[in-house]
Every structure is written in C-alpha cells, then in structure tokens.
C-alpha cells in the first residue's frame, strides 16, 4: 500500500448532509403513498438513528424515546422537506435537536447522584495519546501493537469508554465523530463558544484514549514480549 494511495480517502465522511433544507413542499396524492414513502426511507436509517441516540443518551429507554419523538416530528413536518435527497440529514438533525432540547432541560434540574451536568475540567490529562503508548519505532516480529490493539478492541469496549465520559465531553465527541457536525454547528447546537467545543473535544479524546489504554492493558490486549506489558 503506497502512502499516497492510502491517503486517497483519509478523512471520514460526515453522515449528515443538507441539514437545513426545509421550506418547500413535497406533495403526495394519497395518504398511503406518503406513509409508504416515509417508511421506505426511514427503515434503513433506524439502526443509525437508534445507535446515535443511544450514544447521546447512554440509556436504551431514553434513546427509544428520542428516536420516537424525532420520527413523529419528521412525519408531522414532512411537508416542509424541500428535497427528498435531504431526508436523511434532515431527520438526523431533528433527532439531534430533540436530544439537545431534552438534555438542556435536564441539565437545568439537579442530577441525582452525579456531577455530569457540570463542566468537566481539571481532572483531564490533556496530553495523553494512545498512539504514543502503542507505537514502536521498529517492527515487532508478531506485528504492530497498533494492529494488536485494533484487533482486540470490541465495539462494546468502545461504547463503554464513550459512555463513561462526562456528558459535555461525550455529547461533543458524538456530534463530531459519529454525526459529522462541524465545530461551528456543534457550538450553535449546544449554545457554547467555539473554543469550548474545541477544548471539550480535545479533552474527550484524551480521556477516551486513556480509558482505552487502561482497558487494553487490563484485558491483555497489548502485550510486549519479555516485559509483561507495553508501558514505557
């Protein structure tokens, strides 16, 4: 694999497109065709809608509520959708707004037994990178520790690490890395300055990577032959 060749698509594609497309009308001759049209487009998105809601809320019941509410809003506002091609991005934007409204409402109330609603700050290890822990400047005969790490990393490990992040960090990283929002869009959605989005994202990544590193060591996912571990 050449370096140039593998860089053809180095950046992830955002999942959200045409988010603000509203205002014109799609007409349906009969209610049945409208329902059929809606359900045909909704069905392939359900796992991503639910998964995104689950990452945002951390709670299956809350995720189901958010998805059901977003789908209901989309159905009742379908006449406002300008372009059928925009349906997916439009629906995900409704989902996000539904979550953010509920999240803000809950943050105004005292959180039982937790400090998740506060702005996380001083406990962060902002300089930690997983890559620095794993990367060896030479080839190991059994392969690279990076590959070993990714091969051993299960989706549930990652979900657990994401869910363990403080609310403000988790929501920011999910909006950017799962949903593909720009930093400016996240700032607008959450009503915080752009700098806050950047710092939350940076801290979220550091915490996430540190948690994954600790998990990898505890689970024996990375093993450096001869010294019982990879810690330097």
């Amino acid at each position: 694999m050449s370096l140039a060749g593998s860089l053809d698509h180095p950046r992830p594609q955002p999942h959200v497109h045409y988010r603000d497309a509203t205002g014109a009308n799609m007409r349906f001759d009969e209610a049945a065709s409208r329902r059929e049209w809606f359900e045909q487009r909704l069905a392939p998105l359900m796992d991503r809608l639910y998964g995104t809601a689950l990452r945002l809320t951390r709670n299956p019941a809350d995720a189901e509520d958010i998805v059901a509410e977003a789908v209901t809003k989309a159905w009742t506002q379908l006449d406002r959708l300008r372009d059928a091609q925009c349906f997916e991005g439009w629906l995900f934007h409704i989902l996000t707004n539904t979550f953010v409204s509920e999240w803000r409402r809950r943050r105004c109330r005292p959180q039982p037994g937790g400090d998740d609603a506060t702005e996380p700050s001083e406990l962060d290890s902002a300089s930690f990178t997983l890559f620095q822990q794993l990367h060896q400047p030479f080839l190991l005969w059994w392969g690279s520790l990076e590959d070993q790490f990714f091969n051993g990393l299960l989706q549930e490990d990652l979900e657990r690490a994401l869910d363990a992040l403080p609310d403000a960090y988790r929501v920011t990283i999910v909006l950017v890395e799962v949903q593909g929002y720009t930093y400016e869009e996240v700032a607008r959605l959450l009503g915080v300055p752009l700098g806050t989005v950047r710092s939350r994202l940076n801290r979220a990544r550091c915490r996430l990577q540190k948690a994954l590193w600790e998990h990898a060591r505890e689970a024996g996912m990375v093993y450096h032959e001869g010294d019982g571990g990879t810690q330097r």
């Binding site: 370096l3 593998s6 860089l7 180095p10 950046r11 992830p12 999942h15 359900m46 796992d47 991503r48 809608l49 639910y50 998964g51 995104t52 689950l54 990452r55 299956p60 189901e64 998805v67 997983l130 890559f131 794993l134 990367h135 990076e146 990714f150 990393l153 989706q155 990652l158 979900e159 994401l162 990283i173 999910v174 890395e177 799962v178 949903q179 996430l208 990577q209």
Partner: peptide
C-alpha cells in the same frame, strides 16, 4: 502518516458505535 492512520482508524471505530440494531 502512521500517526494520522492510527487516529483515523480510531475515529472510524468511534463513528461505528453510532450504529446499533434498533429493538
């Protein structure tokens, strides 16, 4: 490049957590 590839792979894995079978 190696660092960029590592972060891209991890980012892709995070993105994949946004797909979960809807009950």
């Amino acid at each position: 490049f190696t660092r960029a590839e590592f972060e891209r792979r991890l980012r892709d894995r995070v993105a994949a957590t946004g797909t979960v079978k809807a009950p």
